[in-house]
Every structure is written in C-alpha cells, then in structure tokens.
C-alpha cells in the first residue's frame, strides 16, 4: 500500500473516511501569502508605531513556516547583542494580522538584558504574517516579520 499520498475519493469506503475526516478535523485552510517582508497592515500596529519607521534585520522572529495547529505555535524572538549603554532593548511587542485581538503580547525589560531571547507559544487564527517590534532605550525601533501557514486555525472568533 502506498502510504504517503492523500486519500482520494476512489471508493465508497474512502468517501466515508474522508467525510468522517471532515468531522474529525476543524480545518479552515487559508492560502499562504507570498509577499516581500513588509509590515502587515494592522491598525493597532500603526497606532503603536505612531508614524515611526523601524529598522529591519537585527531583530529576529522565528515561527514555523507551516504550523500544525494554530492553538499552540512555538514562537522565538532573538536580538543579538552587544548593546551599547543606553541602547538596550526595553520592550518587544508582538502583533497578529488575523487574530481578533491583534496585539498578542508585550515583553518588557525593566533592567537592561544581557541576552535578548524569548520563547513562547502563540495562537494563530489562520495563515498570516506576524510582526514583532523591539524598542530600544534610545527610542530606536527594530522590526521583524514571519509568515505562517496554519493548517488548523485556532478558534479565536467563535466561528
């Protein structure tokens, strides 16, 4: 038997299996977007930036390109040092393009961190671009984005 290919509707049995599969899974497939790295347009993000222009390249946002399940997607943030005095990271905010609450989290460093690396798990209501914005003590902003394709979206909007 060939294992690694999708089930096709070749027999009544397969048909029933596929129909049952639809009931078993809560899939809402969304197309993957392929755009150059730019900040997604999210009103809350625009408000957060308030017209300021972040730099790209130094802040890194790591999310799997393909997430199994939007209920828990591993997310990592890095910002390699060293940081000159007065230029340390003071906060990092995380924004979602598709979630009903666009600002997912904000991490604050009340004292200058020697190492900026954060890991957590996020919920994603569908395939989308996620953005992170780091603020430095001198007010400079650094941004990173990541595109995630989500096979089973987290049910975040009651639909």
């Amino acid at each position: 038997m060939k294992r690694d290919e999708p089930l096709t509707v070749a027999s009544p049995l397969r048909r029933r299996i596929i129909v049952a599969g639809a009931a078993l899974a809560t899939t809402r497939a969304l197309p993957l977007r392929a755009e150059p790295p730019a900040l997604p347009s999210i009103p809350e993000l625009d408000a957060y930036l308030a017209g300021r222009k972040p730099e790209f390249g130094r802040l890194l946002l790591d999310l799997p390109r393909l997430a199994d399940d939007g209920n828990a997607v591993t997310m990592r943030l890095f910002m390699p040092g060293p940081f000159a005095p007065g230029m340390q990271v003071t906060s990092i905010a995380l924004f979602s393009e598709k979630n009903p609450v666009p600002k997912m989290a904000q991490f604050d460093f009340p004292v200058a961190p020697a190492k900026v690396e954060i890991e957590s798990r996020v919920r994603l209501a569908g395939s989308q671009r996620v953005a992170a914005i780091a603020t430095l003590a001198d007010g400079a902003l650094h941004a990173a984005t990541a595109d995630v394709s989500v096979t089973i979206a987290a049910c975040l909007d009651g639909s």
Partner: peptide, 18 residues
C-alpha cells in the same frame, strides 16, 4: 466505518490536514 478502516488499512495517509 470500523476503527480498522482508518488505523489499519489507511494509516500513513493524509485525511485533510491530518
């Protein structure tokens, strides 16, 4: 369907996203 229809005769196959 029986349990075997999926887990013995069709394991390794994709069923939608799973």
């Amino acid at each position: 369907l029986s349990c075997a229809d999926c887990h013995e005769h069709n394991w390794g196959r994709k069923l939608l996203a799973e």
